[in-house]
Design a protein around this nucleic acid. Structure first.
Lengths: 256, 256
DNA sequence: ACAAAAGTGTTTATAATACACCCATGA
DNA sequence: TCATGGGTGTATTATAAACACTTTTGT
């Protein structure tokens, strides 16, 4: 069994982790004009779940979240925010998990660990899917970007976590800019508008969108232009990160 | 020592609680035209902290928060929301706590319990201060409403929790109504306006405020009137709880 | 030169703000 | 009847939405 070695190591390290506390990550990416979520498929090839992990005794909660993200995304910098704590007493179907992990014949320590009641802190991360190749981990055989509207039933309350993330994005979008973590370095106004349309789930007026966004003054317009279709070439833009950051902090309402 | 009996009992019950996880409550109330926070003074008469507690193994996280609130406020129904998890590894100055609890000569189990690293979930509660008398607990000698701008240095990261609560209220106020939990059953438009002015920290136009709020249509106007000053008597209003609830759920922006 | 999409401008509707006016009440 | 604060109306300004017009590009 592929993960046996991992579990032996994990059994040794168990005492380094805080008990009963876990972290799960809703990692959102934007590609093909859709919002996607990064989900793991377990070795049984049937069950899906969000990437997650545990908190070491000598690390901050946020540090743990970053460490867990890095094992999947190789990324250093990304938008990362604590979303919500999920603490229902029966939120985990433990029997199902043990089966799916194929660890029923594993050391008692490991079994006891996974049989605990866990309170889980859900984190939201926004990333650009084109900037890295996601990596599966010890208990999963594959990791995939799945469109947010086509997520299958996940283990435990993980679907609820995604809903929470989507609600958060919907609300935040109305008074904070998004995009810095979701788009490539340079992009067209149309691309940015499409992102907003996907998240808001409604069409926006091209002319008014352009005016509003430019007025906020956190985009840098580049002289260069794209080549492509048989039409006028659009400007490319990038974010003025300082002004963008100011906006994130102020959080002024800027789109109805 | 007054709490010895409590600690004996607590030592017995320790195994009923989840380790390393605590709850702290920012309880906000509005009186004398100011936002107040409910804080505890410890028995040493110098240290202040937020009311808090631990999570039982057989209760949901939210249930624990409600239980903890009830021991202080006697209240059943109130606005309650999970704010943020505080998880810095050195967030608690443990030595200071042990001194202040005067439990340095207490059973080892108790000592070990409090010496743990705790991750704490901060909850926000809004209550009407006139509807109950707050109660101190085993480790505090008094509990008081203190204006949010005059909070002393509290233990650990509790000041940060209050800042977090205030920020949350500031943002929420812009696209959700507040008041149902903070005001008495019946109130004048002036009172409601004052609440908004205190929270937003700026003056609002009387006429426009009235029009905007009434247009939202979640207030019930009562025929009766107050007596008092030498002037026209104002209407009394109360909340239409159904419409108010609809607004909370929709969360439409309604005050610039 | 034409189609297609980008960029800009103009008109219209809607909402926010400022402030003026009249009303009711108790001294 | 007068001062005080309450309630309502109106003019002004700012913002949002709709859409028309012009520009640039590849074919």
């Amino acid at each position: 069994m592929l993960n046996e070695k991992f579990f032996d190591k994990f059994a040794e390290d168990l005492h380094d982790y805080l008990p009963t506390l876990s972290i799960d990550c809703v990692i959102l990416g934007y590609k093909n004009e859709e919002l996607h979520v990064l989900v793991l498929r377990l070795k049984d090839k049937k069950s899906w779940m969000l990437p997650g992990g545990f908190v070491k005794k000598d690390e901050d909660l946020d540090e743990a979240a970053i460490r867990i993200l890095k094992t999947r995304t190789e990324l250093n910098i990304l938008f990362l925010k604590q979303l919500h704590v999920f603490g229902k007493k029966n939120r985990r179907d433990i029997k199902a998990l043990l089966q799916q992990l194929e660890i029923s014949n594993v050391k008692d320590e490991i079994k006891n660990w996974f049989e605990q009641r866990f309170i889980s802190v859900a984190y939201l991360a926004l990333v650009n899917p084109e900037s890295f190749t996601p990596m599966p981990d010890y208990m999963s055989d594959s990791i995939k970007w799945i469109p947010i509207n086509k997520i299958p039933k996940l283990l435990f309350d993980h679907n609820e976590m995604i809903t929470h993330a989507k609600d958060y994005i919907d609300i935040q979008l109305k008074y904070q800019p998004i995009g810095l973590s979701l788009l490539p370095e340079k992009f067209t106004m149309k691309t940015l508008q499409k992102l907003y349309e996907v998240v808001l789930d409604r069409a926006l007026d091209r002319a008014n969108f352009q005016k509003k966004i430019l007025k906020l003054d956190f985009l840098i317009r580049h002289k260069k232009q794209m080549s492509g279709g048989a039409h006028r070439a659009p400007y490319l833009y990038s974010f003025n990160k300082i002004k963008y950051q100011e906006f994130l902090e102020r959080g002024i309402g800027f789109l109805s």
